[in-house]
Structure formats: C-alpha cells, structure tokens
C-alpha cells in the first residue's frame, strides 16, 4: 500500500533536511581561513599527485560484471523468501537448484582465475 510509504518518505525528508541543516550549522560556526594546504584533496594523508580522473584498470570490470549477475539473482530471492513458508520444502528444493546453477558459475569463474588479481 502506498500509504505505508508515508513513514519511509518522512524518514527521507527528515534525512535530507538534517544533512542540509548540519551543513548550514557548520557554515555558520566554522571559521574560514583557507590556504592551499587545506584545500588540497585528501588522500589518506599522502601528498596527492595527478588527477583523480585516471583511467582505471579494466580488471575491475570483471568484478563489476559478476556483481551485476548476482545482483539479478538476489531479485529472485525476494519473492521466494516471501512465499517460502507457505510452499515449504518444494520451494526450498527449487531455490537450491536455482542457486546451485549460479554457484557453479561462480566456481567456474574462480577456477578460471578471473577472481585473481593479475598485475
């Protein structure tokens, strides 16, 4: 029911207002004495070099693709979880097959060495 979402909606609204309010307070309260040292990007305390916009390693993309696949899988877990109790053991076996096929895929990827970080 959409009315049930009034509560999360309220949370969202309060969350947004809270963040804006804190920023506003910080602006009011904090002294402003900028210098180049302060305005430099924060890189874990190291002196930064170059742009942050560098070309990233293509290897990240494989992890990203695997994530997408399993993200789609999770979508199917929701309706299953909701009706699991009423359908019982049969639903359990079905989901087991569903997951087994995908876990086989994960094992394949693992054995293939795609999860290994090659330099």
């Amino acid at each position: 029911m959409p009315q049930d979402y009034a509560y999360p909606g309220l949370f969202l609204l309060v969350g947004i207002i809270f963040v804006l309010f804190v920023f506003f307070l910080a602006r009011l309260a904090s002294p402003k004495k900028p210098n180049p040292e302060k305005e430099r990007n924060y890189e874990c305390g190291e002196v930064p070099f170059g742009f942050a916009w560098v070309q990233y390693n293509v290897r990240y993309y494989i992890f990203c693709l695997i994530f997408v696949i399993f993200d789609v899988e999770v979508v199917f877990l929701f309706p299953w979880a909701v009706v699991y109790k009423s359908l019982g053991f049969f639903a359990f076996i079905e989901m087991l097959i569903f997951l087994a096929i995908l876990i086989f895929g994960l094992v394949y990827v693992w054995k293939k060495g795609a999860l290994k970080w090659v330099r």
Binding site: I62, L65, I69, E73, V109, K112, A114
Partner: peptide, 17 residues
Amino acid sequence: VSVVLITALISAIIIAR
C-alpha cells in the same frame, strides 16, 4: 533464468579475459 544468468556470467568472463 538461472541458466541465462550463468550464460551471461561465463560469456562476460570469456570476452573480458
């Protein structure tokens, strides 16, 4: 659907590797 997903996974790996 599961089979389709695994196909997508394996083909993605093969293309990426």
